[in-house]
Design a protein around this nucleic acid. Structure first.
Lengths: 221, 221
DNA sequence: ACATTTCCGTTGCATTTGCAACAAAAGAAG
DNA sequence: CTTCTTTTGTTGCAAATGCAACGGAAATGT
């Protein structure tokens, strides 16, 4: 139960409201065994879920059948919301339980349309859902900015710059180690290290581990 | 007026509802001269707009002051919705009129909270907005899939594969010419042409201009 | 039909990047 | 302190990529 209260979808609600809301949402809790699919690509979309316990993988399969793991989902995480809310007829990805898992599932429609009682809870999670989608949007847009740069250096600077701007400081501590940073920016770790090292020698920035300090101008001398 | 009816935000409404709704939303129309900023990075967010006529650029400025054009917006296009809805305190980007432009502006809050009259229109654009955010989400996620591949070939295949899957066909016609396709995938046009040519020689696919036909298996022989 | 413009494929070349392997540094465990 | 593990920096090398330039093909306009 605590899981739900911490989930952004149910933010602002208390335990009591929650049980009423779950009835409203026609939510039901289900268990999945290790290796069981919650849904597969091609299944009708319209389902939203919250992980209660266990571990899920969101998988994508391309035209030739190659699978990629897109995300790992743990307790509290939300899934299916974007596809369902976008009105896609089918899920383009699959959700797999990689550990015995319990999830709360409910039909998307129940969120979108106000219930007969027009309850406040309903309004609230409606707003929450919108905020969740919007935030994810902002996040994705940001990451896309970095990845659409063509060179390693530009990607790195784009990433660090965005952090510096949002923290209003030239001092940045990132939440990644080198390997994770390289993964986030979709590049090789050694290439990342090499470029960082180069940039430091050129005086664009200084760094130590996951702490960075940006210089004045990456271009002019 | 027609512009609005075609905009996804106002989908499902008719002309009459629209005028009532605009009052509800406290919408006002404003004109901007060429070169005038609608808002600048750092301004308080919370504003949503629809372009009526003219042309806007969304600009981003990085830590060192380098500007990038993120988007071009024309009549019917929506802007500001993600940032405002996400609850960001400030806009991280700027909006500039590059031609004399007219836009409809309204405060985000008016969409999120139902009006005193609890009008149906209100509910409707609430749902519309959510769908818009969700669809953009799906789009961004898809593009991110492609860009996070490390090699030119993988990016191309990821892109074509996703189109093939969603159209349930190995025959694909893309909405881009070469240069645009290269831009979309963030790569050099000649590098794209070279790789396509290579893949065709290897039998992975065949193509002509913007029409592609995928082969059976890009890996095994 | 002809001229003009846009689009596309190709290629040489310099540079960048991924990959692999190793060394140095930092941190954790004993 | 010593040992072991993890993280990070470095480097050689092959392959990939961006860049620039060019020529041919296709589309467009007259």
């Amino acid at each position: 139960m605590n899981i739900f209260l911490q989930s952004p979808l149910f933010a602002g609600l208390d335990g009591e409201s929650l049980s009423q809301l779950f009835a409203c949402l026609k939510a039901r809790e289900r268990s999945f065994q290790r290796g069981e699919f919650l849904f597969s690509a091609g299944d009708a979309a319209g389902l939203v879920g919250v992980v209660v316990s266990g571990l899920l993988h969101i998988l994508q399969e391309d035209y030739w059948g190659n699978r990629t793991i897109l995300t790992h989902l743990g307790p509290g995480d939300l899934f299916g919301e974007a596809f369902s809310c976008a009105g896609l007829p089918q899920f383009p990805v699959s959700a797999l339980a990689v550990e015995p898992s319990r999830v709360l599932l409910f039909p998307w429609q129940q969120i979108a349309t106000p219930c007969a009682k027009a309850c406040d809870f309903h309004l609230r999670i409606n707003q929450n859902m919108m905020q969740i989608l919007a935030r994810k949007n902002v996040m994705l847009t940001g990451k896309l900015q970095h990845l659409s740069k063509r060179t390693t250096r530009e990607k790195i600077l784009s990433y660090l710059s965005s952090l510096a701007l949002s923290s209003h400081s030239r001092e940045i501590t990132i939440p990644f180690n080198r390997q994770e940073m390289a993964d986030y920016l979709s590049m090789d770790r050694s290439a990342l290290s090499r470029e960082l090292s180069l940039m430091q020698r050129e005086g664009l920035l200084t760094y130590n581990r996951n702490h960075f300090s940006l210089g004045q101008n990456p271009y002019g001398e």
